[in-house]
């Protein structure tokens, strides 16, 4: 997988979370774009069509399900990883129906998220191969 194409879009209205994830992925050489405002994040998405998006569920401006819907509209191949501290069966089902790549509940270990991103990258590169 060409790492330069694997920029991550991270959407969380808690600034510290985005910065934290940026640090974690940055140390592994993965570039990230952080948005604390989901509305602005969707503008960035429209411009760059990120292929991997990590989003929180509970945000004031727009919830994670809406982010998922919009991201998948802008780029149907995008892999969306949703994280939440308020998990429920219904929410998970709705996210799965909406095409979420991975649904992660807080608290979670960083490795869990890193694994999810690696798998998303692998899938993307497999999906790319036939056309190459």
């Amino acid at each position: 997988m060409n790492r330069t194409t694997a920029r991550l879009l991270i959407i969380d209205d808690e600034p510290i979370i985005g910065k934290r994830l940026q640090q974690v992925f940055g140390k592994s050489g993965i570039e990230t774009v952080i948005c604390t405002d989901p509305v602005r994040a969707m503008e960035a998405m429209a411009e760059e069509r990120f292929r991997i998006v990590i989003t929180d569920y509970r945000m004031e401006e727009m919830n994670g399900l809406e982010v998922l819907r919009r991201v998948r509209t802008l780029n149907p191949k995008a892999k969306v990883i949703m994280i939440t501290g308020y998990p429920s069966q219904e929410l998970e089902e709705e996210a799965v129906q909406g095409g979420v790549f991975e649904f992660i509940t807080k608290p979670f270990r960083m490795d869990q998220l890193k694994d999810a991103v690696s798998r998303a990258m692998e899938e993307l590169s497999e999906e790319q191969e036939p056309s190459m």
Partner: peptide, 13 residues
Amino acid sequence: EKLGGDYLFDIHY
């Protein structure tokens, strides 16, 4: 364990 820095969690937790 959450305080070790290897986890992400929130106030609700």
